[in-house]
Amino acid sequence: MSFTAELSQLMAAVLGREPTLNEMILIPMVPLFVAGYLVEWSSFRLNSGGWGTAQGKPFYLREVIANFSLGTAYYASSAIMNILYVAAVFAFVWEHRIHTIPISFGTVILAFFVQEFCYYCYHRTSHRVRWFWTQHVSHHSGEIMNMSTAARQSILNGIVGTWIFYAPAVFIGFNPDLILGLLGANLAFQWFVHTESVGKLHHWIEWWINTPSNHRVHHGRNSAYIDKNYGGVIMLYDHLFGTYQIEHEKVRYGIRQQIKSHNFLVLNVHEFIDMLRDVAAPGRFNERLKHIWKPPEWTRADHNPIHTWPVKGEHPSAQKPKDTF
């Protein structure tokens, strides 16, 4: 029996079902993720002589614990959502596909660029549509940057429907295991770009690839960095759609309305609850509903945005409001 078959059999015994290719890639990578983090932390400690125990340091302990807590819950919730309905959704779409694209070297390359486009659309929408921002905000609310920051994921992914961005690729004929497997590889790659330990690389590499420098920009709340660099592995679509930005000033991490909490549950649901409370607040019904699909910073007249938990807001001059995708 091959190693892949043995791994699949072992994971099936643990999950109680056959693992998806996405899970076959991401779950076995966890030890490598942790190893990468430990190497990064050890390098920082040797060079600085400290643990990074003060807030704002790259390895602030409370935030690292919150990061790994969010990551663990994300894995568990994703498995549950797959069992409940996500796997069935992709099976349904595949059953009703308009074509069958055979798997070959050439179509795998094509599928990579299709998946990257789907990811770009998801990622950009999750910043510009509040419904999807409610699940992505936990990833951006971290105020430090190290590999554990990549673990800041949400238990709301399946609930808000992030899968919808990849269903079209399956509908046109790409095998769902292939698309979701490539997505798993995409996410695994991104673990290693969440770091301050790697500076800028050659400009040609920076132009094409999602490097640590490019991704630090994406996590910045600096005015020039907001809503930039959405690419997963490559920066092609950022160049095509005008969202590419080089790192040219020190990055300030976090979000414009910074949640001041390290509580696992608060980090997962604060934006979702605030959105629902904004919708429920008095006002014209059609205006209230706009809180769902407008950008996160959008506000309506005669309504003060609701924050269930304390936040620290940016000065208005640091914001760059816009209503379009």
Rank of each mutant, 00 (worst) to 15 (best):
L26P: 04
I172G: 07
A73P: 06
S2G: 07
K322T: 13
V279Y: 03
W94S: 11
V93A: 11
M147Y: 02
L46G: 15
E116L: 01
I273Q: 09
I164A: 15
G181D: 11
V14G: 00
Q135T: 09
G142A: 10
G71L: 05
T308K: 09
Q153D: 11
A54F: 11
Y244E: 00
A87D: 10
L180T: 03
F241L: 15
S69C: 15
W191N: 07
H291K: 12
D278K: 08
F132V: 08
V30S: 08
I306Q: 00
W293S: 05
V198E: 10
A280C: 05
I205Q: 08
S148C: 04
P295E: 01
L32A: 15
E116A: 03
T195D: 01
L84W: 14
V266I: 15
N229G: 12
I172F: 12
A318C: 09
K322W: 12
Q258G: 04
I164Y: 01
I273Y: 05
F3C: 04
K290I: 07
I273R: 10
Y120F: 14
C121P: 08
A12D: 01
L187G: 08
V233W: 00
G106W: 14
V89N: 04
L183Q: 06
N157H: 15
I259R: 01
Y166G: 04
H203G: 11
I27R: 09
D227Q: 04
A35W: 13
F189S: 02
W191V: 15
L7C: 05
N214V: 06
G161F: 03
A88K: 15
W204V: 15
D278G: 05
Y120Q: 05
T324R: 10
I259D: 06
P212D: 06
L276G: 07
N268I: 10
R130G: 06
H139F: 00
E314W: 05
Q9Y: 13
W207S: 10
S77R: 12
H96F: 10
A91F: 11
H203C: 14
L21N: 01
I109Q: 09
V217R: 07
V64Y: 00
I179C: 06
I205D: 09
I164H: 03
T324D: 13
L15Y: 12
Y230W: 04
Y74D: 08
P316D: 11
V129K: 03
V14C: 06
N146Y: 02
A318L: 13
A167I: 07
F165S: 00
H262A: 09
V137R: 04
F92D: 14
Q153N: 14
E6I: 12
W133S: 02
I255S: 05
I273A: 13
N286C: 13
G232Y: 02
E206S: 09
N263Y: 06
I144F: 07
N175C: 04
W207T: 12
G231V: 00
Y225Q: 07
G36V: 07
F3L: 14
R152A: 02
Y253A: 05
W208R: 06
